[in-house]
Design a binder for these strands. Structure first.
Lengths: 335, 335
DNA sequence: CTGTTAGCGCTTTCAA
DNA sequence: TTGAAAGCGCTAACAG
């Protein structure tokens, strides 16, 4: 772990360090002989360029900063994988910062990224959607793209269509003949969950089928889905279908229904959301909405690169979702 | 996004830029008056220090490089979360690089990390366990800690006990009275899967119960577990228990058993591994081995920091695992 | 207390 | 074709 610099290579090859720079960057014209000598010298003493110094000079760090919600869950993890892969393919490194659940440390990490002179920032931290200070920094700092709303707008977003992610499953259940359709929601502080719940309400209200008693919070987690279902069943035993706002909660929902002796889909249908890998093999396999989170991450990076290249205008890219039909939905029981 | 430097602040405060440096870093003694003036000036023109320049000078980037296998799956994601959180708590940024499935790009990314002068490297890329070149770089480059074996050794590791992760579940099944115990394995190229399979074989061989026909590969994935179970059942309908090397595959295993009309645990017991969140609510809830992957990531960072501080000797930290008993295991059917 | 002198390792004109 | 000069933004000695 020596500190071999251009100068060391230069000394060994009997040239100036500027010439070494040219050779190692393939710039300028150099005699094949010296070029060869330089390359060998670099090789021999194990020269490794210093990206810090290079960035200082070139005013470009070839780095993207990513600020993300905790990615223990597969949804944000998928977006992160998409971001990382796309960045890598463009030769960019990724500096990763994940936040506390309340997003209170976001401003601090934005600052760290700015100090490190990242070329751009990708946000995936729904907990900060209402944070004005975050919005301000994102508008005035380096180019940024977000996977969710930013307070005050002005930041391009790439999102997964949330209207469809609620409308599709609810309509599917309606088409099957269900009338008592409950929903297990994600954290209602999040815009995406609010929107899904709103669409659920609108669609059912239009048909005179909306009942606030059929809405329960599952907080995005397996146990939340489990507990919410027991509460729903206690309160409204006549429900024949449940729209669950993510697949993880749906696992808990299926378990609770099983415990209560309700067969799925014969006694009660269940639709999830995400198309998590386990959804294909729950018992029964889960009808769900496929959400292109991976693609959203990759698309965000591409959009960010466009912005970096040409300070182009704001954009709002919305990726479409689609239904995946499996065995957890059917017509309601006769009677 | 201007490029405000120390000089700009200095000009505005009518001092030399070196004095500004002192003030902003809380070093040296400065008159409260000028200090105040400098701080205000910095504030007014929105000065943001340049970490690149600082690192160039201080020869420390306050950055950790992480090289990880694709973390779409929750196991590596958990370790990554642990790494990131621990690093953050120590004021270090994390540069994230994920690899192709075969790990062929590892050497390239190691080099990128070295060019960026990271202060240390955390490896979580089992695909490179046999790669001699990776081992060499890790031994000669910046301090490194790995979550798996490194070819040639010499790199401290923090691992999750793999012997116990196989011995515990198999012994549990034996204690329940099972004699025909199958296993669905992870990718056999990985040391961790090889070790689990070896322990499974040893424990059963000792009792004269080992049968190579009862071993099937599930490749770590839901569908792999599903398909492996069907193959097992076709070949050896008399099995009464399955040790599945991760919970994701176990979801597929439960589904396949359900399809074949085998009730769990009455007709067949199932033990998983990982204690993935869904394991608590599969049908039936899964008996499994809790693997402290999050802790392993965090511990690796702490070990790395020790090494950075004091080039201390190699170490091999092994974190213990523990059984989580749920409803998927019972005594074999009578008869 | 404050400013000057010296680099950290690199890229980029511009002369020779 | 090569090298010298200049500077990216910063920190660290040391002198004033």
């Amino acid at each position: 772990m020596a500190s071999v610099s251009l100068r060391d290579v230069a000394a060994r090859a009997n040239v100036s360090f500027q010439t070494v720079s040219k050779v190692l960057n393939g710039k300028g014209a150099v005699t094949p002989a010296t070029r060869q000598r330089i390359i060998e010298a670099a090789e021999e003493i194990g020269y490794i360029p210093n990206a810090l110094a290079r960035s200082l000079q070139s005013r470009s760090s070839l780095t993207l900063g990513v600020i993300t919600v905790d990615f223990s869950n597969s949804t944000p993890a998928l977006s992160l994988v998409g971001i990382e892969r796309e960045a890598r393919q463009h030769g960019l490194s990724v500096i990763l910062s994940s936040l506390e659940p309340d997003g209170s440390d976001c401003v601090r990490y934005l600052r760290v990224l700015m100090e490190r002179r990242v070329d751009g920032i990708i946000m995936n931290a729904p907990a900060t959607e209402e944070d004005e200070e975050v919005g301000r920094l994102l508008r005035t700092g380096p180019p940024a793209v977000s996977l969710h709303d930013i307070a005050g707008g002005g930041v391009p977003t790439v999102t997964v269509e949330s209207e469809g992610s609620a409308a599709l499953p609810v309509r599917h259940l309606l088409a099957l003949g269900h009338r008592r359709i409950a929903t297990v929601t994600g954290l209602q502080q999040r815009h995406s969950a609010q929107q899904r719940t709103a669409v659920y309400r609108e669609v059912l209200t239009e048909l005179g089928l909306y009942d606030p008693l059929l809405v329960e919070d599952g907080a995005w987690e397996v146990e939340g889905g489990y507990a919410a279902t027991h509460r729903l069943l206690d309160r409204a035993p006549d429900i024949t279908a449940i729209y669950v706002q993510n697949d993880l909660m749906a696992v808990g929902v299926l378990n609770a229904l099983h415990e209560r002796g309700r067969s799925v889909p014969d006694d009660c249908s269940v639709v999830g959301c995400d198309d998590h890998p386990v959804a294909a093999r729950t018992i029964p396999p889960l009808t769900t909405v496929r959400m292109p989170f991976f693609d959203a991450g990759a698309a965000a990076v591409r959009l960010l690169l466009d912005r970096i290249a040409s300070r182009s205008a704001s954009a709002e890219d919305v990726l479409p979702v689609s239904m995946v039909y499996r065995a957890s939905t059917a017509s309601p029981p006769a009677g």
